[in-house]
């Protein structure tokens, strides 16, 4: 320990040991952002290659693509990872720029709601196509 305290430290020994900081969540947000980013690297590359192959494709070709079980699985994983990562990223932007408590909270709630809404809409669309309903 190189730290020297000339007077009482601001942080208690217990607080230092638990290591969660003032926001009470420690590195949780940071870590989740990295893990979802790592998952998105292969998923995004797979998706972009797929979309380029589908340029100008008709409906039947598109449906045949989604009906492939691997496509459906990867699309659903992509949607989950994308909206999770998006919500984490937008949260930081909102917390950085919205100072007023109520505005920040309201925007965070709306953003989370829309993220879940779009994710579920996307997953349902993939399931409907994949299961041929």
């Amino acid at each position: 320990m190189t730290e020297q305290h000339t007077h009482a430290p601001m942080r208690s020994s217990l607080g230092r040991a638990i290591g969660l900081g003032s926001a009470k969540e420690g590195v949780t947000h940071w870590w989740r952002q990295r893990v979802s980013a790592l998952a998105l690297v292969p998923l995004t590359i797979w998706f972009v290659i797929g979309v380029i192959g589908l340029a100008g494709a008709d409906h039947a070709t598109f449906v045949a693509w989604v009906r492939n079980p691997m496509t459906a699985i990867f699309l659903i994983l992509l949607l989950i990872a994308t909206f999770y990562h998006t919500a984490l990223g937008l949260q930081v932007v909102i917390e950085d720029y919205l100072e007023r408590e109520w505005a920040r909270l309201a925007t965070l709630l709306v953003m989370r709601l829309l993220s879940v809404l779009f994710a579920v809409r996307g997953i349902l669309a993939v399931l409907k196509l994949a299961l041929g309903a």
Binding site: T82, F83, L90, V93, F118, R121, V126, L129
Partner: peptide
């Protein structure tokens, strides 16, 4: 670009949704 891509996800979901709604 992160913010732009967040908006872009709406296009992605619209595309998938339209495909599931029919030709």
């Amino acid at each position: 670009t992160g913010i732009a891509l967040s908006v872009g996800t709406i296009v992605l979901v619209s595309w998938l949704g339209a495909a599931s709604d029919g030709p």
